[in-house]
Amino acid sequence: MSRILIIAEHDGQSLNISTAKCVSCAQAIGGDIDIAVIGSGADAVAAEAAALDSVTKVIVVDAEHLEAPVAANWAAEAVALAADYSHVIGPSTTMGRDLMPRIAALAGVNQISDIMEVNGPDSFKRPIYAGNAIVDVSAPAGSTVVATVRAASWKAAGSSGGAAVEQRAASSSAATHTRYIGLESGGSERPDLQSASKVVSGGRGVGSEDGFQVIYQLADKLGAAVGASRAAVDAGYCANDMQVGQTGKIISPDLYMAFGISGAIQHVTGIKDAGTIVAVNKDSEAPIFEIADIGLAGDLFSVIADLDELLG
């Protein structure tokens, strides 16, 4: 039977939702599921992890030098734990994509990126070519499976469990070659883009940083997170952590509303798993309409003004 270790993503305060999605993927693989919380003073995170359904054990590796997710430090701890497991998985967020290949190389195995479906304990489906092809991949028999999980393909596991929490001492000392300086974050009060059930997004058609304000206003009215296309980010209309798409965030909200976004394949890759896609664009030939569930060809500013009025 498989023994699966999930590397938790967290910020020291709370567990990132992608970890609960990894649990769903682990359930599909089948077997014993443990979660490693590597960090410093992350007791609240460990408690959240222990509450996730079907988790047997939460292993807390606590040391001051593990506070920031420096891959060299975290990978050393993960590899020390890995010997007891058939699978070591993490989310395919920037944290997981930074960390998991380092773990795989130290364990001497190739890594599987972006599991979207489980065929069997060692066999999975994953997207390649920006999601333009889905390929079946299998890890070689008898070797540890190290993989990242495409969060947008999985629902978060429930939180009615009660796993044991076990403390482990760090096995390595701090890597002196890497110094974490800090994180500059948008610091938005709005819902988190990656876990929000509604997302309102703006593209090049929004025209300016000022123009983008109407996107924020509509999002706030709907209680939605705010996203953007690469074109809008590159043009400086909004911060880069709002970018949705192949090279930005891949999301799966219940409702995605795209304003002034043409629908380049790289953007579509990031929203394909959304429940309902709404597109508003003045170009009725824009490719976004090919994948939209509800399309409206028209001026985004007047549509938003009307929505604003009708929604009261």
Binding site: A133, I277, D293, I294
Partner: peptide
């Protein structure tokens, strides 16, 4: 220790939506 790469398939298509 290569990952074995098997069948390739096109991605599932979203159904055509409505225009309002």
């Amino acid at each position: 220790g290569n990952i074995e790469v098997g069948n390739h398939a096109p991605p599932p298509q979203r159904e055509k939506g409505v225009m309002v």
